[in-house]
Design a protein around this nucleic acid. Structure first.
Lengths: 183, 183
DNA sequence: GTAATCTATATAAAAATTTATATAGCGAGG
DNA sequence: CCTCGCTATATAAATTTTTATATAGATTAC
């Protein structure tokens, strides 16, 4: 199960469940999403299996924190997951399912609007990702060569995110042009 | 639920559950996957809700076929799904999760091998998609303008597939170069 | 001061998905 | 003639994921 392995990866740095959720929303949104109601039970399970340790900490804001951290055993499981090779061909892109059947909409206008709406959203996301990338560039001299390993591999996923979302933006533009030419 | 809507889309042409599975493996593998054990119960559910009709047909090979077809009610639900706008931000890319934590592997060689393995697989898939695209080009004069609407929108998803997989191939190459430069 | 928002943890119920398994006819190869 | 593989349908069990809901202290905005 990938979510469990991602949790083991995240919690190499100690974090609360709430912090983990923030990681998903801010940094992983590119390639993974998870709800708190999924995260907490999985943390519990991993702790029961001895892959995570739990420490209670007082919190300045709100009730006490439970801080989770990956154990040696947990890291071993993470490594096994990565060593077994890249996990692919499991992707689900609902928007492409919708596109496949876009002809079910009764007017060309509606089809174009669908694509424009996707274009707008992807454009915004693309700009967001680019601004994060710019930030990283500013912060590191001789980017990306001087990045620490800890920052470099996460950056690779950001690079892929920019590429992927950029490809969707391009594709929307081509699709809109082609649809208009069909009139 | 996207799978149900995709089934409603596929079954605008009458098909058996087995045929539907083949569609997923051959044509939808780009953006969606589903097992037979998931497909059959969903077909049953959709038929119970009146979104699909069932006709039994004799088969030349093996036992009788149940042929499913989307009803008017089913098409209305499909249209609603598409009209509510593109469904995004739900994607899960396990390979990017692995990449994010690639530094957990203890040698540069293993990291490079991970990327090379991904590169190889994506390259093969890219070529496969390109050959399908070439085939379509050959079969249609004045491609893609003279395609029927029924063929055009599926082609759009193939175009996106080629773009996406091509982007991954490119990214793998860049990543491998960057990792080597870090030595 | 009080309402709204944020931090924080969690459970229940429903729905979706995966993995494993069962069955059975038919055709092809040896 | 017998085994293997393919077509075809299906169920059981386990796991994963989503959606909804509950609770409660602390902070911020008005």
């Amino acid at each position: 199960m990938s979510l469990q392995h991602i949790l083991l990866g995240i919690l190499q740095e100690p974090k609360s469940g709430y912090d983990v959720k923030k990681m998903f929303d801010e940094i992983f949104s590119n390639f993974w999403s998870a709800e708190l109601s999924q995260i907490y039970p999985q943390l519990k399970k991993l702790a029961e299996k001895g892959k995570l340790s739990i420490t209670e900490e007082e919190s300045s804001k709100g009730p006490n924190k439970k801080v989770y951290q990956t154990t040696q055993q947990g890291i071993e499981e993470l490594v096994e997951w990565i060593e077994q090779g890249p996990v692919v061909h499991t992707e689900r892109h609902a928007y492409l399912g919708q596109t496949f059947f876009l002809n079910s909409l009764d007017s060309t206008q509606k089809k174009i609007e669908f694509m424009q709406s996707l274009h707008k959203e992807m454009n915004q996301w693309h700009q967001h990702l680019c601004s994060i990338m710019e930030q990283a560039k500013k912060e590191t001299k001789n980017f990306p060569y001087d990045l620490s390993d800890e920052r470099f591999y996460p950056l690779l996923t950001l690079m892929m995110g920019v590429k992927k979302v950029g490809a969707i933006v391009e594709w929307c533009e081509e699709a809109i042009e082609l649809i208009k030419l069909r009139l």
